[in-house]
Each structure stands twice: as C-alpha cells, then as structure tokens.
Design a protein around this nucleic acid. Structure first.
Lengths: 196, 196
DNA sequence: GTCTATATCGGGATAGAC
DNA sequence: GTCTATCCCGATATAGAC
C-alpha cells in the first residue's frame, strides 16, 4: 500500500523532540515558536500537533525523559563498598553523563520555571532523588570516618553545583579530555570532603 | 510650577528597572512583556519608552549595571598578603554579595543568551575580569606553595560554580545564617585547594 | 500524517494629544 | 512625562481537505 503523500513512517515524532531540545537549549523555551520547530523539522506547524498536545507538554516530556534516563543510568553504575569509592564513581559518572547530553542538562536547569506547577513538581521529585544519592554517600562516609564534612546536605549541593558547572565551559576538542577533566575534579572533591 | 498631570518627578525610571529585574528573574526575559512591566509599574506601556529605547536595551542595562557593581564591590574588598587569606576574602565576599542580589545574579546567568552579540561581548568581558581575580589568587598560592591545584583555570571555574550554587537553595530565615553558610563553604574550599 | 487556511490573541513599538 | 489609540507582526492552536 502506498503511504499518504508526505507521511514519514514515524520519523517525524523523534525529529520534533530532537529539534525542540536543540532550539530550547539554544534560545530558551519562551523564545522558540512552534513554527520555528516545524520549519527545522521540515513540516508545517499543524503537523507538530500530531506528536504533542501543546508546547508545554513537549517541554515537560523532554525534561521528564531526561531525568528518567539520568536515574536509570545512575542506578546501573557499580556500587563499591567504601564510601570514598562510591563518591569517585559518582563524580566520574556525573561529569561523563552531563557532558554527553549538554542540551538536556541545559534545559533541565534553565527551563524549570517555565513548567506548569504540576509538571514542575514531578521534575523536582526526580531531581531530589538524584541529589539524595549523593547525600547518602556523604552521610555514609561521615559515619565511617572516611569523610569530614560539616554539613552533608550543603556539601551535596556544593559538589553537584561544582560538577554541573563543567558543562558551562567544556568544549569538545579543547585542551583536556573528559577523563582528564574528571581526574582533576575528583582530586578537588576528594580533598574537599577528606577527613583529617 | 505645577507638574504635568501624571508626571512622577523621576521615580518612574528606577521603578521600571526594579520591576523589570523582578519579572525577568521570575519568568524569564522572553516571557515578560513590556505591557506587563508597565502594568506593575503603574503606567501605560508608552511611558516605558521614555526610559529605554527598547526591551533589549533594558535587559542589557540591568546586566551591565550589575556587573559594574560586582567589580567595584570586589575591588573595594581588603587585599591581604597571603593567598590563603585572599581566597577566604573572595569566598565570603562572593557568597555575601550574591545572596544580597539573588535576582540580578539569576538573570546574569540565565539571560545571557537573550543578549544581542554586541551586548553579550560586553558582559562576557566584565565576567571574565571577575573570574580572573579568583584565578590570580589560585596561581599566587600555587606559586608560594600554599595551594596545590592541578589546574588553576579549572579550579577557578569549579569554585565559582560551587559558590554561585548557594543562590539556588539558600532561603532567608532558613536553618543557617549567611555567615554560617560562608563558614561551611570556606571549609570545603580551603581543603579542596590545600597543599599536602 | 500532513497540508492549507484561519480564528484568536498578545507581542513590540510608535504617533500625537494633553 | 504620560496617555490613548493604533500599526504591524507573529504567536498558539484548531478545522477540515487530501
């Protein structure tokens, strides 16, 4: 059977998400129009609405998909015994994962305020689950005496901010490889929380 | 002489800036309309254009004013001899200054991509001057042997990101005072860059 | 599934009266 | 310096043909 003229056998949906992710990261959710997304995908604007009920749902779906992927990837990481080893796994994982998805990371931090309250609450819950993983490592290390942190909650915020900051300056093909960057950051993190 | 009816003897200008800062921080530059700003100021939209040629210039003026204030405030800080003491001054200054101006800090990080290229370049130059101040401290301490950082450039990025992150979670009236937060962050920073 | 056409709305910015 | 009125444009979203 011949397809309806102009039909694209199911590739338009993923393309819409790709393009929206790219444009939202580049110009910001509020500054990007559905027309612009359609143009870049190569369809008319009406066609977009076969894949999302509206613009807001598109943003939410991108953010939720990203957070689910983050949590799944973290849970698939090895989980050594010693808190110090777990912290090292976390640091290297966070840098590697974030640098592999700069656009998704970017909108995850920048576009939260453009989510409707109900959508915002969902994303916040997922984000807190990830942050809690780091804080648990710090608490364990504090309990065993491996770490000495005055406040595990603040330390987890401080470390996440520091590690996430890599995305603001890292450029592919630059002076350092991702592994080298992770080495340097791990050195600072290790010392920052070290006991004695 | 009686003033023209509706004239406000020069308070509307500052009010426009205040309100724009607040709304841009709350909803994002692209999502805020000139009508919305006018409504909150209490004038008609036409009146706004007595104080800015257009919306873009308003954003730029806010960001530039903030950066100039930041640099001036930093240059007014004490400058002790020892790099370690200078680093402590920087850490405490950065946290204190940022927490005193959460809205300006927020738009300084979030709205850079909404600046026209020429405006963006100006802000970037100012921002780099501030970052260079921290890197210089780290290089000095590395030279005297007070610090041991594998890469002063990366360390400066890491520390700035960590310190600026305070603004994402700190709330007035919370568990910790600003001074206590600064103590805790200084402890982590000190250890992260320490020699030996 | 995609298209064209359109309803409806709100945006930035300006002109000219007061 | 502020107001009212308006120009012109582009936004989201939908309807109905193919």
């Amino acid at each position: 059977m011949a397809r309806t003229q102009g039909s694209h056998s199911g590739i338009t949906g993923p393309r819409v998400r790709e393009v929206a992710l790219k444009l939202f990261a580049q110009h910001g959710y509020a500054a990007v129009s559905m027309r612009q997304i359609a143009r870049e995908v190569g369809v008319q604007v009406g066609a977009i609405y076969n894949y999302t009920p509206d613009k807001q749902a598109l943003l939410f779906s991108l953010l939720e998909g990203h957070m689910e992927e983050l949590l799944a990837a973290w849970e698939a990481e090895p989980r050594p015994e010693a808190p110090q080893d777990r912290l090292e796994v976390f640091v290297r994982f966070h840098i590697r994962f974030n640098l592999a998805r700069p656009q998704a990371i970017f909108i995850s931090y920048m576009e939260l305020r453009n989510l409707e309250p109900a959508h915002f609450a969902v994303i916040e819950t997922l984000r807190k689950r990830y942050e809690a993983a780091l804080e648990e490592i710090l608490r364990d290390g504090q309990a065993t005496g491996a770490f000495s942190v005055p406040d595990t909650r603040l330390a987890s915020y401080a470390l996440i901010a520091m590690l996430t900051g890599v995305n603001t300056w890292y450029r592919e093909g630059g002076r350092l490889s991702i592994a080298e960057v992770a080495d340097i950051y791990w050195d600072m993190v290790r010392k920052a929380v070290a006991a004695g």
